[in-house]
């Protein structure tokens, strides 16, 4: 199985680099152009959240292979920023603490098949999402 790719995120340039690498890894894993674009869009949102709220962090691209034959791509977006005080609120459509459209996290959840978020105020946020090959 291909190794993980970790991309350090510290500026808006890194957001573009992360989604471009994510698209390339997704295409190599066998995803269609359309699915790879969904994945790249999710990475763009997650990486931007890191820059906007935590200044820096990382995005890890992890090709996954289950024993039942399922192939997928897991993305881990992690930072040691201020964390999210109310995760339920942050996952609500239209809610934004930054003046954005409030579609970032709930949108990412719609784009991907699996979504998990761990965040504690003061100790950072880790969002783990997976898309499975249909």
């Amino acid at each position: 199985m291909p190794a993980d790719t970790q991309i350090l995120i510290a500026s808006d340039r890194d957001v573009v680099a992360a989604r471009q690498q994510g698209r390339a890894v997704a295409l190599r894993a066998g995803f269609s152009m359309s699915e790879a674009t969904l994945i790249a869009t999710a990475i763009s949102e997650l990486a931007r959240n890191i820059v906007s709220y935590a200044n820096q962090g990382s995005v890890t691209l992890r090709p996954v292979h289950r024993s039942n034959g399922a192939i997928g791509l897991t993305i881990v977006a992690s930072d040691s920023g201020p964390g999210i005080a109310d995760v339920t609120l942050a996952l609500r459509d239209g809610y934004s603490s930054s003046g954005g459209l409030g579609l970032g996290l709930p949108g990412v959840r719609r784009l991907m098949d699996e979504f998990d978020i761990v965040s504690r105020a003061g100790s950072g946020t880790t969002v783990t999402v997976t898309k499975w090959l249909p």
């Binding site: 359309s34 869009t41 784009l111």
Partner: peptide, 11 residues
């Protein structure tokens, strides 16, 4: 494919 992703995202 960009339009497809936009609609899923809610845009």
């Amino acid at each position: 494919e960009v339009a497809f992703a936009m609609v899923q995202l809610g845009l």
